[in-house]
Design a protein around this nucleic acid. Structure first.
Lengths: 203, 203
DNA sequence: AGCAAGCTACCGATCGATCGGTAGCCTGTC
DNA sequence: GACAGGCTACCGATCGATCGGTAGCTTGCT
């Protein structure tokens, strides 16, 4: 198995292997892990099944790689930059903005993530779940900060965190729908909707 | 193929066929349509594969039946009662309340609905999509009413509708997670979160 | 020469689906 | 009240197709 092309140098030309993962992710998003066959994936990248196995070691491991790649990208594009923002409200706004933008523009593999985790081996499941919890923690801590400053409505921080995550992955899923015309409009509406749900109305 | 036991008399004892559909729905929620085999479903109800085919005509048709049943239940438990409420705000509160309650207590087959529609034949897809649109319309019209009365924040009604739907199906999915301790608390928080996102802060 | 990236050809297992057959229950007829 | 006929609800066995995966050969680039 060659270089995965996913965890490697940031701006390298897209490897064939990366194309494979990307095609696989796209198919799995709309047909599920169990509903997507290796042959289909091979066909999608113009290859035979055996040829595909030059790039992957197993179907399950491929899902694991995709999920890890998705988490890497999420950290690189969303989590890391957003951590540098001091104001918690602005941090949250940018988090939503960047994550939706990333889901629509880059591979939306983030979406498949949640629903297909259980097809992994238990150990790998736990690893991915751990990385997800880190992601939730960033949101939860930001909400806690807002609460400490008295800017947050009275609400259950854990449930609010789930609602925020759920809204973002939901938006990513709508991509295939008809009405998702203008990305910037969609982002602005989602940010406004979420902030209104969270913050105290300005006094 | 015998009586489905799903569309039949309201308070009849649960048919064997109904058990089959229910078990199938449960399995498909956590493993996807493609990831759930007929043998698994048969085993779940203590039957052989051949025996199962006495109750269903095909795997695809079974999904179609389940989806239609889910829509029936949604209309019976949520949509119909809620239409009778005059005040749009209260109507929306009850809609969220009833749908979450129904998802947690009754079969949560509603959830599988959205993500697995594309495994149906095109004609059946369109039928289910049509029924879903009716459901969206109820929410959208309610939002429009609130807007006309000047009680709604300035927002895109279509996007807000999707956010509301997404939040409810999201909550239904969390059932398997750890933290979903108290149903009533979860409902109240979700209602409050959603209403804060939608309504103008009281003057 | 060496190695990455393919290919053809094939494996055992499992898939969804169908076959003929049967145990048990109801119902009507004489 | 016995028994033929029909019906529901399953069974074991098996179908062709497809599944994930492998062995070994070829090809082209460096």
């Amino acid at each position: 198995m060659p270089d995965s092309g996913l965890r490697s140098a940031p701006d390298a030309a897209p490897t064939r292997t990366a194309e494979v993962y990307r095609a696989a992710a796209e198919l799995m998003v709309e047909k599920g892990f169990g509903g997507t066959s290796i042959s289909e994936i091979a066909q999608a990248v113009g290859m035979t099944k055996a040829g595909l196995y030059h790039h992957i070691s197993s179907k399950q491991d491929m899902l694991y790689q995709i999920l890890n790649y998705a988490m890497d990208e999420l950290e690189r594009i969303v989590t890391a930059p957003v951590r540098l923002i001091e104001d918690p409200e602005e941090r949250l706004r940018q988090l939503i903005r960047l994550q939706i933008h990333g889901s629509v523009r880059h591979g939306l593999a983030f979406t498949v993530l949640f629903s297909e985790i259980n097809h992994l081996a238990p150990a790998e499941q736990e690893e991915i779940r751990g990385r997800l919890k880190e992601n939730h923690a960033l949101i939860r801590e930001t909400l806690q900060e807002l609460a400490n400053e008295g800017r947050l409505r009275e609400l259950d921080v854990n449930i609010a965190t789930m609602h925020i995550m759920n809204a973002m992955t939901g938006v990513a899923r709508w991509k295939h729908q008809d009405f998702t015309s203008d990305e910037e409009h969609l982002i602005q509406e989602t940010v406004a909707y979420t902030m209104a749900a969270l913050l105290k109305p300005e006094a």
